[in-house]
Amino acid sequence: MYIKRPIEPLLWLLFSAGGVMAALVMPMTLFLFGLAFPFGWLAPPTYDRLLAIVSNPLTRVILFVLCSLSLFHWAHRFRYTLYDGLQIKHLNEVINMVCYGGAVVGTLVAAYLLVTVP
């Protein structure tokens, strides 16, 4: 008999919710903060403006959901990438621990950082 893992559907749900969030938000945000500002194509927002944006409660909730779901998206997809790409399914316990454990830790870090924004 197989051991049933009823958590699997939840993991797929988090994977797909995170995939949608990441696809919608990341390209533009990374273009601005990763390319346009460092290369000087655009002037970055002032500190006061960015602080006002980040300390808004709605922004904090959105950023938290984005960070957490994206991390679970990464965990789930990367797990299967390792399984399929490198054929190391026999290491599944270690892989699961690193992937989902990493997502849980990242979620806690995100929660802490967003709660402590002044």
């Binding site: 960070c67 998206h73 990367f78």
Partner: peptide
Amino acid sequence: ELSSLAVAWFVVYLLMLI
């Protein structure tokens, strides 16, 4: 499939910014 690594890096980068 490897794009998930970029997604994870983005979260790290965003949290550093925050």
